[in-house]
Design a protein around this nucleic acid. Structure first.
Length: 356
DNA sequence: TCTGGGGTCCTAGGACCC
DNA sequence: TCTGGGGTCCTAGGACCC
């Protein structure tokens, strides 16, 4: 039997800020994505539990958060610092794992099938891991333990805040059954709307559904949904995980139709993308620009180069060409983004043809 | 209330080649 | 005159997650 855990840091960005600003501990606090005093066009990235009591939520526009509760510590994001703390957390988590897979800045799956004898042992070990993170770094986390990644993730939701939750294999279906379909990992707003239209309100409804009917209605995704609803997931904890794309995007302070501003933004973002590319030792093949209009509609335009390139100057060149070719004159943009993809590690040569 | 930024994966049509 | 099938690459868009 497999034993898989998901370690998920609680309100991570704000928890990191509490470490260096002890005065905000336990008080309403949010980390936001915009530096300006009144929030500009930013959103709440993380809200402390005290802030959540007033309805503040991640993803909420900062301007709205201000209206709801002005008397809150509003802290601009500092990703470098969170990355640093994340690395410290992950270093500890790794020492408790047979296999380790980081899935985001504040979450990691670990396979503990060998380290833990059984569920009780797993619970004991994960409590120790939690304690170690708390004692060494002062950060809270929640840990879900079960037989696969999906169930570990679902269990971790039940562990919040600051807890460990074990869901045994024979408890999995019961654990899921009463929850709304939207709680199932991988089911977002669109899918849950569709599911509800078909009468699947809870995960249990979905689990009991005829898989043939689900496949008719949702194609190959239907089979996955049926498995997930029954707590089935065969995927492995993936140790070696490769970057597939690198991107930057910026929302303008005001919507703009000025080509200068767009080109300037592309230049700055391309430079950052290029740096990250070099640091990772990657060559790229595809350059994509993303345009967001004032009504929030988006278009993407991309071009494949004939070769994989390590020439970071090329990123901005191609991006500007795409902009000139596809952006309508006079049309205002809210946001612009640059991405490189189809990456490959390169070893030495400045530019290589047919690099596989 | 008015909506960030960084990613992944999937689908689908058309081009092109054998 | 009307007619394959398979494979891969390219491009665009959408859903989802943190």
């Amino acid at each position: 039997m497999r034993l898989i855990a998901l370690v998920d840091m609680d309100y991570f960005f704000v928890a990191c800020e509490e470490l260096r600003h002890p005065e905000i501990r336990g008080k309403p606090a949010v980390v936001g994505s915009d530096q300006k005093p009144e929030g500009g066009r930013g959103v709440v990235m993380t809200a402390s539990y005290a802030a959540r009591k007033f309805g503040l939520r991640s993803g909420m526009p900062l301007s709205m958060a201000y209206r709801i509760k002005k008397d809150t510590a509003y802290i601009p994001q500092d990703f470098e610092y969170y990355e640093e703390m994340s690395a410290k957390v992950m270093a500890i988590v790794k020492t408790h794992a047979d296999k380790f897979e980081q899935v985001s800045i504040d979450e990691a799956f670990i396979d503990i099938s060998k380290k833990a004898k059984d569920y009780d042992d797993a619970l004991k070990l994960m409590k120790q891991l939690k304690k170690e993170i708390r004692e060494k770094l002062g950060l809270p986390c929640s840990i879900g333990v079960s037989v696969n990644k999906l169930m570990a993730k679902m269990a971790s939701e039940g562990a919040k805040p600051d807890g460990v939750k074990v869901v045994r294999e024979d408890e999995a279906k019961e654990f899921l059954s009463k929850k709304p379909v939207g709680d199932l990992y991988g089911v977002g707003r669109k899918t849950s709307q569709m599911l509800e239209q078909f009468g699947y309100r809870t995960i249990g409804d979905l689990a009991k559904a005829n898989p043939v009917v689900l496949v008719e209605r949702f194609k190959s995704y239907g089979a996955e949904l049926h498995n997930a609803a029954n707590g089935v997931d065969e995927s492995e904890v993936q140790e070696n995980w490769e970057v597939k794309s690198i991107s930057r995007e910026r929302t303008f302070e005001r919507d703009t139709s000025e080509r200068n501003e767009m080109v300037e933004a592309i230049g700055a973002m391309s430079k950052e993308v290029g740096e990250e590319l070099k640091n990772g030792g990657f060559a790229f093949k595809v350059v994509t620009i993303k345009l967001r209009y004032p009504d929030f509609s988006e278009t993407m335009r991309s071009r494949s180069l004939s070769h994989r390139s390590v020439d970071t100057e090329e990123i901005a060149q191609v991006a500007v060409q795409l902009l000139d070719k596809y952006a309508e004159r006079e049309e205002k943009l809210r946001k612009i983004g640059v991405r490189v993809s189809n990456l490959a590690k390169y070893k030495g040569q400045k530019r290589m043809l047919e690099y596989a």
